[in-house]
Amino acid sequence: MHPIAAIMRRELRSYFVTPVAYVFLVIFLVLAGLLTFYAGDFYERGLADLQPFFVMHPWLYLILAPALSMRMWAEESKAGTLELLLTLPVTLVQAMLGKFLAAWLFLGLALALTFPIWITVNYLGDPDNGVIFAGYLGSWLMAGAFLAIGACLSTLTRSQVVAFILTALVCVLLILVGQPQVLDFVQGALPRKLVNGVAHLSILRHFEAIARGVLDVRDLMYFLFTIFAWLTAGVLVLDLKRAR
């Protein structure tokens, strides 16, 4: 078996032998439902789509993705298993990918388990399932971006709490940075081009485009590049720690 697959399997197993997986899945599904029906006005809108469902996902991931990613490296440092893992014949990139993919697949599973809401909307009306599919894809990509940020920040510390807080902080910044209020605020201070650049960093802007059913290559690239960049940064941190 390839080392990446072996590490991914081990990580996934460890979610399920500890209560982590079940607690996470239950909270994820309950929150996803509650937010959609109460905060998202699923019924009152009278539209057969999943917009109210997807709109809440950034906020859902803001809490739950860091909870999933915080242990990724912090726990290994603390328990001393990092020394074991990194003296096995695997590269840092392989170890990072294995861990990240496990978390991403697991969040994918959580997302897939929201299928009753998809059935509901199809039962109630006649939604555009292409748009819904795009929404799921965008949501999963966004989850990947959050998890990659968490994977990187988890390498910085032995404390899972610190990893959680750092990750949540960076994620909330990435969500808020595209909000009109924030842009208005920096408008005066920064040159126009920079403001536009900052707005492009926003996770929300790219996610909302995909969730509306517009699969633009630029939005997909944004998420894939975010994942790539943060995972690379995580690998660099691990490598620096060897030499520090």
């Binding site: 078996m1 390839h2 080392p3 697959a5 072996a6 590490i7 399997r9 081990r10 197993r13 460890s14 032998v17 500890t18 328990a79 001393g80 298993t81 020394e83 074991l84 096995l88 014949p89 695997v90």
Partner: peptide, 20 residues
């Protein structure tokens, strides 16, 4: 150090897999 939440069998199997 070893992964405490794994059984001995799982742990050693993991090592076999990583070592391919």
């Amino acid at each position: 150090p070893s992964y405490g939440e794994m059984t001995v069998r799982e742990f050693l199997t993991f090592i076999l897999r990583v070592r391919a």
